[in-house]
Write a protein that binds this DNA or RNA. Structure first.
Lengths: 337, 337
DNA sequence: TATCTCCAAGTAATCGTTTACATTTTCAAT
DNA sequence: ATTGAAAATGTAAACGATTACTTGGAGATA
């Protein structure tokens, strides 16, 4: 590995000129430019990234915090972030937190220590304002964009869909096709999206003059997992006056519910409508294909990273972006009666 | 952000002493140690990583190259790598190549430029020895561990299962329960694992005195996707003397085959045995639950990263590790006749 | 007391860039 | 030919850590 000094010697110029050629940061004659470029090629010179970053005090790295990566939902978002980051000349460091707040905190410290310039977080729970105060003090805005989830701070930027409206709309659809007893499968976690989807569900019921009953609300384990969905659905289906439709806050839970229905002898789609959330790939693998709320996942990732980069480079202020969701009608829902 | 000089002043000692305390790299009296530690705490000092790395010429970063991250198979491996890396004090940089060789090459250049110390690659195709020669020259061993896949080089280390033996064993199982017409769904790609699984399939047939016929071998698109699996299976099932069992080189393909069977009026599990590979989560989501070959995914990731770190730190030579696979019998296979 | 060890601490060079500032060159206008 | 401005180049000081080398002082020995 050779240094800028080697290049300078080879080209017979000073290091400053070489640097100027590399960065286009000052006037250089065509002759010198040519000599330098040739020397660079000849020596196969690559600037030392540490020296540069030490001097420039920048890292060109973005942190990405994601609860897990097994869920295909997050995988798409990460792809979007990656592509945007690459386009902006940033690398990404991925942290799979597995709900481990310590791991998350450790990772975020890389921001402070200058190892990363900013972060896209998908792990924020409702009341985590404090986290930022701890890390960045009360005054300064942390270089963070929240994606999908966000905390209760007033100023922090985020990119998400309007979970409340989406859930409301989904449940309204169920009502519109004749369902009156509509169950809800949520998840015990502190994500704002979960809460908003519950509110949307309740809002739709109330608006239609239907009763909101805790009998119809069941919470799966916090992992959003298939098996948790099954258990939750079984509980719901075992109750008297069982629902004719179930709204689930994730597709994987919905798939679990479908399986549960089948196990207790109900034909999913016909005997029980199930509506999911996320539109993951396996929603279209088996019959009945899942009716679900689709989020623009890749796009959310892209927009988040773009916003973060603009904040870092142009000092753009925090903004809050809602992207469009879409309800995709497939086979798992049918008119009641 | 304060520097080591600030700490030194605060503690009333020299920067050298501070550095010695931080790194334990020389004799320091208990008194100075205490003063320095206190100053560090008081100023909340964090060493500047760029300065350190510039001086020490190390990056403490590992590259991870993965074809895609939507496939839950890879997600687990990445988790394993992450955990091992963290334990060894390394960060990881993830590159989702999407089969884009240029992207991969760009990323690998980070090794040369010192931005990363080593790489775990899951993207290597059979004849890619050349890639390394381009990057590292003919002589020196690149700091790379291959995981799951590997190329035709004799010396490069890898961690994988014995794909040939696993496939052979899987097909032998199908034979043992009475199947004679056994189809194969592969994938048009240049991964060594795909080829070895095909060889295993053929080997099992030959060993049992059954005919190996191209009529029974079908190749899905290179994405391993669900829809490709469906199409491939339909082709296979449409042929005369259709197979009573199909061995698929991935679970997602197998799930597609199951769906295809159902669509042409065959009861999967009873009318057609399907055997998959990988044991992904959705293999257990729907009936018939998938009989499949399970790979120790998380473990493969862990072992790969451990091996890489040992190579980097202790200069350990390259080794080739086979981990144990396991055949998991579930509902998608049944005795023939 | 003088000398010799040895341990602790300090000084300053170094890693490879970038860049403020100084200097030289070029060239048009007088 | 002289001047001046503008353009091109060079010099050297940062950036923040590590570390080879030097120094200072305490205690042991003669």
């Amino acid at each position: 590995m050779c240094t800028i000094l080697d290049v300078a010697r080879e080209a017979g110029v000073s290091v400053a000129s070489v640097s100027r050629v590399i960065n286009g940061s000052g006037p250089v004659s065509v002759k010198t430019t040519a000599k330098v470029k040739q020397a660079i090629k000849k020596l196969n010179y690559q600037p030392n990234i540490w020296g540069r970053r030490l001097r420039r005090k920048e890292s060109r790295m973005l942190l990405v915090l994601v609860p897990n990566i097994h869920n295909p939902f997050y995988a798409s978002i990460v792809s979007g972030i990656e592509d945007s980051a690459k386009l902006g000349g940033y690398g990404i460091m991925l942290c799979i937190t597995n709900r481990n707040k310590d791991k998350e905190y450790e990772f975020l410290k890389l921001l402070k220590s200058g190892q990363a310039d900013g972060a896209v977080m998908m792990t924020l729970e409702k009341q985590e304002k404090r986290l930022f105060r701890d890390l960045f003090g009360a005054t300064s805005l942390p270089p963070v964009v929240q994606c999908c989830e966000y905390c209760d701070s007033k100023e922090l930027p985020f990119v998400a869909i309007d979970n409340l409206a989406a859930a409301k709309q989904a449940v309204e659809y169920l009502i519109s096709i004749g369902h009156r007893r509509i169950g809800f499968i949520g998840s015990v976690n502190r994500f704002i999206s979960s809460e908003l989807r519950l509110q949307g569900y309740r809002g739709a019921l109330t608006a239609a003059g239907l009763e909101v009953s805790p009998e119809y609300e069941v919470y799966a384990d916090e992992d959003y997992g298939f098996r948790s969905g099954m258990l939750a659905a079984k509980e719901l289906l075992g109750r008297q006056g069982r629902p004719s439709a179930i709204f689930c806050i994730s597709d994987v839970l919905a798939l679990g519910a479908i399986r549960a229905a089948r196990e207790v002898g109900i034909v999913p789609g016909r005997g029980l409508s199930v509506l999911g959330f996320d539109d993951v790939e396996s929603a279209t693998m088996f019959h009945p294909l899942l009716t679900t709320v689709s989020q623009p996942r890749y796009e959310m990732g892209r927009v988040s990273a773009d916003m973060l980069i603009r904040m870092l480079e142009n000092g753009d202020g925090a903004s809050r972006v809602y992207l469009e969701h879409q309800i995709i009608l497939r086979e798992s829902t049918a008119a009641n009666r």
